[in-house]
Design a protein around this nucleic acid. Structure first.
Lengths: 335, 335
DNA sequence: ATGAAAGCGCTAACAA
DNA sequence: TTGTTAGCGCTTTCAT
């Protein structure tokens, strides 16, 4: 293979110097007042030689890279992939190369990932849905890399997250309204299912659920909140035992994630149509097909676009960095 | 902020030399036969100083980067995100840092993306679902970067893609069987809807559809294949006008993608249950919720894991590179 | 308006 | 077993 061309090759072939070539080719143009003659010649030769800049070299020199990193739990999840999609869009708009890496909610993997990205000198970092955002924050801080938390809040950097409390409150209220309309709003009749109590987002949603239920029906029993995790298998089991305990469906149910909903539905589908007569259900998170089931589902759709835009807003601004939390309201999607 | 530590700092503080430090810290360990004493001392000091290797520098020197790139159309699509998820997994397993960038099926964006990745000296490249794989192949070849096509085949590098013909043939046959079972298998009664005829994958699926239909009922009329694109709005319109033309649903329908299916369903849901009596439907591509609709849907699930694994197989092997196409059979998912 | 040269942090000969 | 040194390709003073 032909050896890679460098600015020296271009300089030689165009009868100029490396520094001139560099200036012409990377827009430092203005500083050095280069004649448009030379500039044109350099560009021509560069094209002929198929010169390609080496970002490692320029990065080494400038201590920057043009890369912007994002650690993400997973790709195959509608909400997360929506985050990364918008992240890439905004990164591009800023002339940077987005680098999204998933770390599977594994704390060690998250740290390794961040360390790797730092070693490649990413200019900025998005920490999305990390299990321990602050640990990653520290790493970034030590490397002097501007960074921001997204989806889950941290204490050491600005965080832009969904307003989980608000979203869950709206959804709960909606379910309670529907319940009331069908006259089945007896205390103890609405349930929250799915998620992990220790998780910040789930905790906020549960808090909202409790508050709203309390306002209408008095404080819920502990058994009304079933934080059985996200796995469909768990939610299937939980749903089945709930049904067996009650001898029927609850009159209202809030499912915490589309994934948990899969398990719930797996059970629901086994029931006859009559079982759904006085049943209202909602899901925190959105999936187009959820609106296509044989009973209506109210959903909460998180605003990935706005979350990302606001997050970039923090990184773009030259304001001093304070670890404030910005809440972005999700959208209620009616059946 | 404290200035960044280099191997020189570590060398000084540990009373050794830069090359020793480098050797200890990056596993060149074996070549230089370093005493475990020095090694330990170096590692200790490195930790104390919070030394972090600079991959740009080492990459510049070695003409490698430890990065492995992937260009992808989109993130928010179950199949693609499944591809990237497996890609990352395998990349990690090989000690490389995966860099996935989406280019929105925009040929220019694809080229820009690949150029950027090349300029960062990625060691290998995955070209997934690109609009013009060969253009990207050429760029990689010029930069001497081993690369591979995935999801869509190219002529200049090995390609690992779904066996679209096989999958669509299976699906079509399944639909024809069901149709036959209900005695509605009159010629002209099965339709293919969605996708773009010019797209390789769609073309293969249509070819299979044609062949299977021909075998059973004789060649389909042109109108039985409706390649109206992927947009749900288009498929909604197409579906509606098909219904109006026939005065009812066709007895069998193969929808080419879950996205197109959204539009189809948007129309179907407006119909009374009676309309579905003699209706069988299949979808090329998989979504868990599609099995939850009020009528059964047979799906084709592409095997992202195997596609990625085989693709890595090509890159791992030292065999001479030939632009062969490897077909991976998808899985038929029954309702 | 342009060139020369130092140096970013690391690796790999080559010495010792 | 370890140290010295010459680059990798680029940017950036400082000269001219």
């Amino acid at each position: 293979m032909a050896k890679k061309k460098t600015i020296y090759d271009v300089a030689d072939s165009s009868g100029t110097s490396p520094s001139t070539v560099a200036a012409v080719l990377n827009g430092t143009w203005a500083k050095r007042r280069i004649s448009s003659d030379t500039a044109d010649r350099v560009r021509l030769v560069a094209r002929q030689l198929k010169y390609r800049a080496n970002r490692q070299a320029s990065g080494l020199r400038t201590a920057r890279s043009g890369l912007i990193g994002m650690v993400l739990p997973l790709h195959d999840n509608r909400y997360f992939s929506s985050l990364s999609q918008h992240f890439e869009l905004e990164a591009r708009r800023r002339g940077m190369c987005p680098v999204v890496v998933s770390a599977l909610r594994d704390p060690e993997e998250e740290k390794r990932t961040v360390a790797t990205l730092i070693s490649h000198n990413v200019d900025q970092m998005f920490i999305a849905g990390a299990t321990d955002p602050d640990a990653l924050s520290l790493m970034c801080a030590e490397a002097d890399i501007p960074h921001i938390n997204v989806d889950l809040p941290g204490r050491l950097a600005p965080s832009v997250i969904s307003d989980n409390y608000w979203g869950a409150a709206q959804l709960t209220r909606q379910l309670l309204d529907q319940q009331q309309a069908s006259g089945t709003d007896a205390p103890g009749e609405i349930y929250f299912l799915g998620g992990i109590g220790a998780d910040h987002n789930t905790a906020e949603r549960i808090r909202a659920f409790r508050d709203e239920v309390t306002a209408r029906q008095g404080p819920p029993r502990p058994g009304q909140v079933i934080a059985c995790g996200y796995d469909p298998l768990n939610s299937l089991t939980a749903m089945r035992s709930l049904f067996e305990t009650l001898g029927r469906l609850p009159t209202a149910l809030l499912v915490n994630s589309t994934i948990a909903f899969e398990g719930v539905f797996e059970f629901l589908r086994t029931l006859p149509a009559s079982a759904f007569e006085d049943f209202v259900v909602g899901c925190y998170d959105w999936d187009p097909y959820l609106s296509y089931l044989h009973f209506p589902v109210t959903m909460v759709r998180q605003d990935a676009r706005q979350i990302i835009e606001r997050a970039f807003g923090f990184l773009d601004s030259k304001e001093p960095v304070t670890p404030e939390i910005t809440l972005i309201r999700p959208q209620l999607v009616f059946p």
